[in-house]
Design a protein around this nucleic acid. Structure first.
Length: 567
RNA sequence: UGUCCCGUGGUGUAAUUGGCAACACGUCUGAUUCUGGAUCAGAAGAGUUCAGGUUCGAAACCUGACGGGACAACCA
């Protein structure tokens, strides 16, 4: 699909998501004084992944589309799991995607004071109490989804006693786990979250922003909706699993609000990708256990991993746009993501020659020592990218796969007696080859070239079926190429009850090729620069790359209909 | 045995809010090509989980089944 068609499609796209429907309805009803405020609320306990990109595109996208604002708010209510390192990476990744929050950078920890006061107010109104029971007892009293809970013996503790205990909890008078503050809602509610939820617990680890100021920290349910309220958020968009939390979200807002305004929680489906695992906790395990080379390992679904792999923000946003927002728990095919990056890179990646598994071809009738600079188009999809000159000589490397001694039917490449074009240069004919007697491996190919067939020349209209990429051996630059395949061999690696996801790790997810040969124009390539290695795929310079040693990551191979036929 | 959410080609989404199911990915043909890519033309593939009901007319509304998911962390 070219650019023009893409634009047409977007214009033709008339449907809007159910979320957007809610927003436009609210606007029509004159709610929130016609304002739209959203927020993206990551917990700084890990790196952002492509699932977050889906949320980011929605949160920032809706705000932008309706002339509103989107806040970045770090949901940092649990100091034991959170680190500054993550805050920095999250900001970097959002910016990389192309979104910005200006000065609206907030932290749930900014509201610790307000939340504490609100909790105290609830106590005063008899709507919260300190529970001295151990965790397992409190949990047992909650009942089960099908059985109602029972009330804590501390449920009707006097207000002043609750106030005193809560204050002392925060001073550090009590051990972690010894007491909690709970909201007094309804122990018999069919919704588990309404059964006197814990709203504060004692944590003595220092917080990355407030250090040792607090000994008591609010739970998610007690912080999120209220933070939305404090910030004037109108539409609080989150994933489906928070649906059952909504009554509690609303309950707290009911206790808090002093006017007509209230934030509205709307839930959409989380992104699931085949052969991919999105759980931050499990991704962290992969990193810690050394199953991958870090958060930005190009096999990771993290934004930094995808970036290193060679993905562009445009492709990710395009992908997100294609999958949509619904309430159906869907599993998206990775091939759609791959389609998105191919579509993008096809338009913008310069074409180059790179030989992954070199096989030397000697053109016996080509003068020794002669070098011709042949002109090659940088990108047939985009004339403005111009052309470049690539040296051609008597000895070139081609891909080992491009020669077969005894070829199958319809094999258009090189074989004894067969002719192919070396792209941009000449048509050559295979006259012979050298084979290792020991291993049977092909060591060299001997060809002759037809001087009348130079590309662009007058007599160059001779047709051959196959065209090969090549690199002049004396001019070739050495490179390491890292080939990536899916990290897991199972479509849904973390969804198997019986089996741990580690069982499905694909042992061939990374292949490192060290003897690769690339054309000399690549010698100055810098990390993150993207290319199409012709006939092979899209490649991106890795951070490990240096002037003396080039390293490329394969982002995604080209579609390969021939490879499919021959499987 | 509870509450809430969801069921549309293989996959993901649409269906102008009740007017005889569309698009994208994928798959398969053919054309074209100095990338077995891209591009172009085309094909196959669902009668909307099922059964009732309302209606001139239902994927959509109602009822009931069936199937899937979420909820019992002092995580978010």
């Amino acid at each position: 699909m070219n650019n023009v068609n893409m634009r047409d499609n977007e214009e033709l796209k008339t449907s809007i998501s159910f979320i957007e429907q809610f927003i436009t309805d609210d606007l029509k009803d004159g709610k929130n004084e016609g304002k739209v405020v959203t927020r993206f609320p990551p917990e700084p306990n890990g790196y952002l992944h492509i699932g977050h990109a889906k949320a980011i595109c929605l949160d920032f996208g809706m705000a932008k589309k309706y002339g509103g604002k989107c806040n970045l708010r770090f949901d940092d209510t649990n100091p034991v799991k959170e680190e500054v390192e993550y805050i920095d990476s999250i900001k970097e990744d959002i910016h990389w995607l192309g979104f910005d929050w200006d000065d609206r950078e907030y932290y749930a920890s900014d509201y610790f004071g307000k939340l504490y006061d609100f909790a105290t107010g609830l106590i005063t109104r008899g709507l919260a109490y300190v529970d001295d029971q151990p965790a397992d007892l409190i949990s047992a009293q909650k009942g089960t989804p099908s059985q109602p809970g029972t009330e804590s013996p501390y449920r009707n503790r006097p207000v002043n006693e609750n106030i005193d205990l809560f204050e002392r909890m925060n001073k550090g008078d009590f051990d972690e786990g010894s007491r909690v503050l709970k909201a007094k809602v309804d122990m018999t509610s069919p919704n588990m979250h309404m059964r006197d939820p814990i709203i504060y617990r004692i944590i003595k680890s220092p917080h990355h922003r407030t250090a040792g100021k607090w000994k008591v920290y609010p739970m998610y349910d007690f912080a999120h909706g209220q933070s939305d309220y404090f910030e004037g958020v109108t539409h609080s968009l989150c994933t489906l699993e928070f649906e059952v939390h909504r009554p509690l979200y609303d309950w707290f807002i009911d206790q808090l609000k002093e006017d007509d305004y209230r934030p509205r929680q709307i839930e959409f489906n989380r992104l699931n990708l085949t052969y991919t695992m999105m759980s931050k906790r499990k991704l962290l395990e992969l990193v810690r256990e050394g199953k991958v080379r870090g958060w930005d390992d190009p096999r990771m679904p993290t934004l930094c991993g995808l970036r290193r792999r060679g993905y562009t923000p445009e492709a990710i946003k395009r992908f997100v746009d294609l999958i949509g927002y619904t309430k159906v728990e869907a599993i998206n095919d990775v091939s759609l993501l791959e389609h998105a990056i191919r579509e993008d890179l096809n338009m913008r990646a310069p074409r180059v020659f790179g030989v992954l598994n070199p096989l030397k071809v000697i053109i016996t009738n080509y003068p020794e020592g002669k070098v011709e600079d042949v002109e090659l188009i940088n990108n047939p999809e985009d004339e403005t990218m111009g052309s470049r000159f690539v040296p051609f000589s008597r000895e070139v490397y081609i891909e080992q796969d491009d020669f077969i001694e005894d070829p199958p039917n319809k094999f258009f490449r090189l074989a004894p007696g067969k002719e192919v074009r070396l792209k941009g240069a000449y048509i050559i004919k295979c006259e012979g080859f050298k084979k290792s007697e020991l291993s049977g491996a092909i060591e060299e190919i001997y060809c002759t070239y037809d001087p009348d067939t130079k590309s662009g020349g007058k007599a160059s209209d001779k047709k051959v079926k196959g065209t090969l990429h090549w690199v002049s051996s004396q001019h070739a630059v050495d490179a390491e190429v890292r080939l990536y395949d899916r990290l897991f061999s199972h479509e849904d690696p973390s969804g198997q009850k019986e089996d741990d996801y580690r069982k499905f790790l694909n042992p061939d997810s990374l292949k490192i090729l060290t003897g690769c040969k690339v054309e000399p124009s690549l010698s100055a390539a810098k990390p993150l620069e993207k290319f199409q290695f012709q006939r092979l795929g899209y490649f991106c310079v890795d951070y490990d790359s240096t002037e003396s040693k080039l390293v490329f990551n394969r982002t995604v191979p080209l579609r390969d209909t021939w490879g499919k036929i021959n499987k």
